[in-house]
Each structure stands twice: as structure tokens, then as C-alpha cells.
Design a binder for these strands. Structure first.
Length: 692
DNA sequence: GCACAGTGTCATTCC
DNA sequence: CGGGAATGACACTGT
């Protein structure tokens, strides 16, 4: 709480406060979701005519610091606004159709109170008590109003609102753990249980609301898809422009008292609570966050990029390794584990303090987990990769940026497309209209599923890995889970998740030291069914399947590109997909052909070998025949000469005479000398003839 | 841990 | 000249 003034006086929103506190201690990250825009933003929106839609902004939390000027007017509007009077305003429809997160006001209030308690200030108890008492007037209705408002807002994703039956089912377990394992909390166990039960009811109520909103959401999404074909602005641009609008819905209606009173109490706090604190004590935010106002705009407007905060936190950590990002020992020893205890002990009316929020069942669990970890324990496990993953998450949550996504995919190419989990996750979404939010809180297992579900929704098909949330989760205390609940508002319900994927995804929740390992395993499990191009296509919202893109004839392909409005990135990706697809088929054919050639050659070799054997056998047979003929000739010779007699009647010596057969058929017995000489002459004659 | 096969992709060439 | 096929080379993954 001490850090409130510098930021507030700087014009920034409460969000700054939470960021600052998150730097000093992990327990305050939750407050990142308190979207209280700086006065300039509010005025801008007023000028734009959006003020009437943002009762949440109607609050003037800084009366002691000058206020916003229009606060009263806005406040009246916000309180007068009847959810039924504007059930589906165009703006709201646009926002929901774009799947932009929508945070029920009640949750914001709950987190605010929680964040205050986590602030570990002496005045926090009083503030909490006062806030609870103040919210008792509007808190009860806030639970209902906030829930009803959350439903349409969460309509961007059926599981948007954290309320869920699952949470209700787990709510009995959740409170028991911290109570049993943390003796300090035993004194407040009953109060915790009451709170949790109360919030379980609220979450149940919200779930019912979400079911209604989910049905409304589908046609809206279709409408949005159709509009995308015509609209020049891609979704991600539209989302950016509508983020501020979404934020207006964050607080919903009805519970402004709790916030307002709290702020008044804060402003009326003695200055000693702010003593010794200056901006100089606060490590500057690097990068885009240059000053309080800018950072305020950055964080407040893009409340949905809760992870983005973490990215900046990471950057700050990198730039200021010795700064207070790592909680100082004093803070570590003095602050840990107190927030929830304080919160519980000083929340006289749980239902009003945390109206209708699913955080109820969740907080004790997180608390329990956090109790077992020091802030350093949590931060030590965070490496660059984790923050890079968080970057992915930020992409998913903040406006859809095809360029960045594409870069991400390119970077992830080497890791088997780590990029993203995709389609499989979404099945859980469709499945989890009831379960997504249910898991919102309830138990650690629910938390796992929640982290998964929340990821699924990121941005239409582009789903960061659940483990990323896990990393963030470790540092961000329960606040982040609130963001988790927001993330799945962006669900794209067009993708399917296999049941096995659900199981695997639930395993993805782990603490940092294990997350990398499990992350890769999870990715392998969940992303196995999608090629990289398919993931890329979904990430860029390519309205065609990869198969279509690849197999389509050239003419159809070109006409398709000209028929639909596609960004350069989309066209480039489509052409790449087609090229790679064609080449992939070509490579397959090439290999098949090569294999066929090899097989054919092998067949040829076999045939030739067989032929060789046959020829060998024929040769042997011929040789045998020749030998037989020689033998017969030899016998004939001997037979002839045995019968021949010379002029004196003596037998003719076969060694001196030879039988010569002439061409005319005559047979002569001539001396071998003549035969040899005659043969020589004939040979010489033949040679001469051949020479000539 | 290594070898190997299968696969996707890129670069290049050819048709 | 553009698109696609063919193919060598490389990297990655699973067995």
C-alpha cells in the first residue's frame, strides 16, 4: 500500500500499483487486472463517447489527488446503467465477437481487495474491512450483476468467466489444504471456508450465465468472420482498438462502492503510509514503459496482456539484476504468506468481498502453493525461455499480430513447431464451456486445467503452451489466475482437442524447474496432430485448409487469393503453404520413385543373375556336347584308319595321314605334312585376302 | 548414445 | 517468365 501514491499521483491506474508490488513481492501480481485508466485515457474515451459503456471507469479512485473530473458523471452513468437496458450493444457485440477478454467487475473488486490484503500494509486490514463493509451494500448485487455482465463479456469465450461447476465441485477440497498445511491459517479456517463456499455459489451462478452467453456468442463469431472478409482491418487490429472498450466492462456494475470506498480510505490514509517511498525506489520499467503515464496506458489499456507484464518484468529483471525485482530478504521474511491470512481474517463478509468470483476456491490453493515457495524460489526457475514463452502468451492475449506470430512460428520451427499448441486444446474449450471456468479455481488440478484452457483460447487458434502459464503462474500469485480466466475468453471454438490431449495438457502445469521438460512433452502430446503449416494457418486465421491450399488448381488458387481479402502475411503464408505442400508431395513422389527405381534395379540384378546362371548351364551343356562330338570324331578316325590300307597292303598310320573333307563332298587321305602346309598356305592366303 | 529410416524443408534445376 | 516437378542436401524425429 505504501507504493500507491507515487503511481497514483503520476496519473497512472491502480495497475501500476500492482506491478510495482509485484516487483517487490510476488503476492501482488493479481492487481495487474485492475483496470483503472489514467485520467487522460478516461477523458479520451469520454470524448469518444465510450464512457457511457464503461461503468467500471466511472469510479473516481483518486478524489484526494485531484480525481478525474468526470467521475461523478461517469459514476452515475455506471450505476444507472442497467445491464438489461443495453444487453447487446454494438460495441459489446464487437468486443465479444472478437473474443477479447471480458472481466466481470466483481472479479476486479475481489482482486483489488485481495491485492490490498497482499500488500501487507498495516492499513490493509482496515481497508479490507471497510471495503468489505462498503461492498456489502453493492456487493451482493455485484455478485449477481457482475455475473450477468461477465457472461456476455465472457461470451467471447464460453469459458471466459471463471465460474464453473468444476470449481464448485472442487471447492470443498480447496479450502481444506491451506487450512491443514498452514497452521497460521487455522484460526481463520472457518472464515475461509465460508468465503469459498460463498464464492462457489457465485461461480455457479456465473457459469449459468456463461452458458447463455456462449449460445449468443457463436452467431456473433460467425458474423465477425464474415465481416473479416470485407473489413480492411484484420482482427488483431480491431482487437487492439477494442481493448480499451473491453476494459470498460471489467468492473461491470453494482460494486463500485467497494472500490470507491476503498480508494477513499486509501486517500484518507495518513501520509505516513506513503513516507519513505518515492519513485526512485521503484526500478524503472524498461522498454516501452518509460514513465508512469505511458506504462499506465500500456498496462491498463492492454489489461488482457497480463503476460505482457511479465515480459516487461523480465526485461526489468534483465536490465536491473540487482534491483528489487528479486524480493529483498526483509520483504521476503516479513511478507510471505500473510496476504491470504489477512484477507481471510479481515473479510467479514466473504460474499461481498469476493462476490461471485471463482477465485474463491482457487486462492487457498495458490496460497498453499505459494507458502511452500519463496519468491526467490519462484523467480529462480524463470529463465529467458520462460519469458519468451510469456511473450508468446502476450501475443495471444494482446491484439492479434500476424507478424509477430509469424516470427514466433519461424523461431519455433527448429523445435518442432513448438510454437503452439493448437487445435487439440480447443476441444477442451468446446468441452469446457462448463469445465473451463470450472477449473478456474477450485483446486490445484482445476488450476492445471484452467491454465490449459486459458491458453487454448489465446487468439483464435493460436494457443500458447500451457506451461507458459505455469511459469507465469508461479510468480503472479492468484492474480494471474484471474488472467487465466480472461484468457480463455479468446477461445476459438472451431478447433478440436482430442481427449488424450486434455490429459496431457493437464500435466503441463508444473513449477518452473519441471516446466521445460513437461512443456516439451506436453507440446509433443498436444501438437502432434497438426503440422506446422496448419498451426501457422490457424494462427493467421487463414480461411482455408492446408489441404485445400495445396491441392487446389492454380487457377482456383489465384482466384481464391483475389476473391478473399487477405493480408500480405496471409497471402505469403498461403503461398508458402502451397509451395511447401507441393514440394512435400513432390518429395514423397520423388522418394517413392527413387525407391521404385532401386527396387527395379534390384529386380534387374536378380534377373541378370538368373540369366547368367542359365547361360552358364547352357555353356556347360554345350561343352559336354562338344566333347561328345570330339569323342565320336576320334572314334570315327580310328575306325576309318583301321580299315585303310596303303598300296602295299599295310595299315595306314593315323599319325602320318589325315582325313580331309572337301567342299565337293569328296574325302581324301593325305599326308599330314600336306595338310599342315596346305593349311599354312590357305591361312596365308586368307590373311592376304583379309588384308586386301 | 549411436545408427538408421522416415519425413519435411530448402535450394536448385529442369520442364 | 511463372508454376510446378524433380532432386540433392540438410535437419529433425522416432525407433
Amino acid at each position: 500500500m505504501k507504493y500507491l501514491k507515487p503511481w497514483w499521483s503520476d496519473g497512472g491506474g491502480l495497475l501500476h500499483l500492482t506491478i510495482l508490488l509485484s516487483l517487490a513481492g510476488l503476492h501482488l501480481d493479481l492487481d495487474l487486472y485492475l483496470l483503472l485508466p489514467p485520467p487522460t485515457l478516461l477523458r479520451d474515451e469520454l470524448l469518444l463517447g465510450g464512457g457511457s459503456r464503461s461503468p467500471a471507469y466511472a469510479l473516481d479512485p483518486f478524489p484526494a489527488f485531484g480525481g478525474w473530473g468526470h467521475a461523478d458523471h461517469l459514476h452515475l452513468k455506471g450505476q444507472e446503467q442497467d445491464p438489461a437496458a443495453e444487453p447487446e450493444g454494438q460495441l459489446l457485440r464487437e468486443v465479444r465477437a472478437l473474443g477479447v477478454p471480458f472481466i466481470p467487475r466483481t472479479h476486479v473488486d475481489a482482486w483489488l481487495v485481495h491485492g490490498v490484503a497482499a500488500g501487507d500494509s498495516d492499513g490493509a486490514h482496515e481497508l479490507l474491512g471497510a471495503a468489505a463493509a462498503a461492498s456489502s451494500t453493492g456487493g451482493a448485487s455485484a455478485s449477481a450483476d457482475g455475473g450477468s455482465q461477465a457472461a456476455p463479456g465472457g461470451g467471447g469465450d464460453p469459458g471466459a468467466a471463471p465460474g464453473s461447476p468444476l470449481a464448485a465441485g472442487e471447492e470443498e477440497k480447496a479450502p481444506a489444504e491451506p487450512t491443514a498445511q498452514v497452521p497460521d491459517a487455522s484460526g481463520h479456517a472457518s472464515e475461509e471456508n465460508e468465503i469459498l463456499r460463498a464464492m462457489g455459489h457465485s461461480s455457479q451462478h456465473e457459469e449459468n450465465e456463461q452458458r447463455v452467453s456462449t449460445q449468443k456468442e457463436k452467431p456473433l463469431q460467425r458474423k465477425n468472420e464474415n465481416e473479416n472478409k470485407v473489413a480492411d482491418k484484420p482482427e488483431w487490429e480491431a482487437e487492439k482498438t477494442t481493448e480499451s472498450r473491453n476494459e470498460r466492462h471489467l468492473n461491470g456494475t453494482g460494486t463500485s462502492l467497494s472500490l470507491e470506498d476503498l480508494f477513499q480510505l486509501l486517500s484518507s490514509q495518513p501520509e505516513n503510509s506513503l513516507e519513505g517511498i518515492s519513485l526512485g525506489d521503484i526500478p524503472p520499467f524498461p522498454g516501452s514503459i518509460n514513465d508512469g503515464m505511458n506504462s499506465s496506458a500500456h498496462y491498463d489499456v492492454n489489461f488482457s496482456q497480463a503476460i505482457s507484464h511479465d515480459v516487461n518484468l523480465h526485461e526489468a529483471m534483465l536490465l536491473c539484476p540487482d534491483n528489487t525485482l528479486r524480493r529483498d530478504p526483509v520483504a521476503r521474511t516479513s511478507q510471505p504468506q500473510e496476504p491470504f491470512l489477512q484477507f481471510n481474517s479481515h473479510t467479514t463478509n466473504p460474499e461481498q468481498t469476493l462476490p461471485g468470483t471463482n477465485l474463491t476456491g482457487f486462492l487457498p490453493v495458490v496460497d498453499h502453493q505459494m507458502r511452500n515457495l519463496t519468491s526467490q524460489d519462484l523467480l529462480h526457475g524463470l529463465d529467458i525461455n520462460i519469458f519468451d514463452e510469456i511473450n508468446l502468451m502476450s501475443l495471444a492475449t494482446e491484439g492479434f499480430d500476424p507478424m509477430e506470430l509469424s516470427h514466433l512460428f519461424e523461431e519455433s520451427d527448429s523445435d518442432s513447431g513448438l510454437s503452439l499448441n493448437s487445435s487439440q486444446n480447443s476441444t477442451s474449450v468446446t468441452k469446457s464451456n462448463s469445465s473451463v471456468c470450472e477449473g478456474a479455481i477450485g483446486s490445484s488440478s482445476d488450476l492445471e486445467s484452467l491454465s490449459q484452457h486459458a491458453l487454448e483460447g489465446a487468439v483464435g487458434g493460436y494457443y500458447p503452451e500451457p506451461s507458459k502459464l505455469c511459469h507465469v503462474d508461479h510468480r503472479s500469485d492468484s492474480g494471474f489466475h484471474g488472467d487465466l480466466a480472461f484468457q480463455h475468453i479468446l477461445h476459438n471454438h472451431t478447433y478440436h482437442l482430442e481427449p488424450s490431449a486434455l490429459e496431457s495438457t493437464s500435466q503441463s502445469f508444473s513449477w518452473p524447474e519441471k516446466s521445460q521438460k513437461i512443456r516439451s512433452r506436453h507440446f509433443n502430446d498436444t501438437d502432434r496432430n497438426l503440422s506446422r503449416d496448419e498451426r501457422r494457418a490457424k494462427a493467421l486465421h487463414i480461411p482455408f485448409s492446408v489441404d485445400e491450399i495445396v491441392r487446389m488448381p492454380v487457377d482456383s488458387f489465384n482466384s481464391m487469393l483475389s476473391k478473399y481479402y487477405l493480408t500480405d502475411r496471409q497471402v505469403s503464408l498461403i503461398r508458402d503453404i502451397r509451395r511447401r505442400g507441393k514440394n512435400k508431395v513432390a518429395a514423397q513422389n520423388c522418394r517413392k520413385r527413387k525407391l521404385d527405381i532401386i527396387l527395379n534395379l534390384e529386380d534387374d540384378v536378380c534377373n541378370l543373375k538368373a540369366k547368367k546362371e542359365t547361360l552358364k548351364r547352357e555353356r556347360v551343356q554345350c561343352n559336354k556336347a562338344i566333347n561328345i562330338m570330339k569323342q565320336k570324331l576320334h572314334y570315327l578316325y580310328h575306325d576309318i584308319f583301321s580299315r585303310l590300307r596303303d598300296e602295299e597292303g599295310r595299315p595306314v598310320n593315323p599319325n602320318q595321314y589325315a582325313v580331309q573333307c572337301n567342299h565337293d563332298g569328296s574325302v581324301l587321305i593325305i599326308p599330314k605334312e600336306l595338310v599342315t602346309s596346305g593349311n599354312k598356305k590357305e591361312n596365308q592366303k586368307g590373311k592376304r585376302e583379309r588384308r586386301n
